[in-house]
Design a protein around this nucleic acid. Structure first.
Length: 118
DNA sequence: ACTTTGACTATAA
DNA sequence: GTTATAGCCAAAG
């Protein structure tokens, strides 16, 4: 009987990121840093973005369009099929996006740590 | 095992 | 508003 390097409770960092992003409510957004802090990584905000880069390999699909940077700019729009795909996805959820920036960011911001019970 | 990377953030100028 | 720099850290090559 061999011990797996990964315990059932210990999911890889990426998987934790995907789990949080999938919990983002419809029409709400969050930031990379908020997700990182929620996972206890704190300063690993870049890793969150990197996880999203691989999110397309994960199932179910991760709503990466709901994740923006700390000022509400659609920094990851280049990783979508089209440059407007991310903006359109957000607008489809009732989020106003002007000049690649989310309007009412402070009101739409969803803090994982505020809703997620670890 | 080492180097590079990256969808971030904070600060400074 | 911009650009530059540093810190950060796990995954990929």
């Amino acid at each position: 009987m061999q011990m797996t390097t990964i315990k059932p409770n210990e999911q890889p960092f990426f998987e934790q990121v995907y789990a949080v992003v999938r919990l983002i409510p419809y029409g709400r957004i969050t930031t990379y840093g908020a997700i990182a802090r929620c996972l206890g990584a704190g300063n690993s905000s870049r890793m969150v973005g990197w996880a999203m880069n691989y999110s397309h390999t994960q199932a179910p699909p991760v709503p990466a369009h709901r994740v923006v940077n700390r000022v509400g700019i659609l920094t990851g729009k280049h990783h979508f099929g089209s440059l407007t795909a991310m903006q359109e996805a957000l607008e489809a959820e009732g989020i106003q996006v002007v000049n690649d920036r989310v309007q009412d960011f402070d009101r739409l911001f969803w803090d994982p740590a505020q809703e997620l019970v670890l």
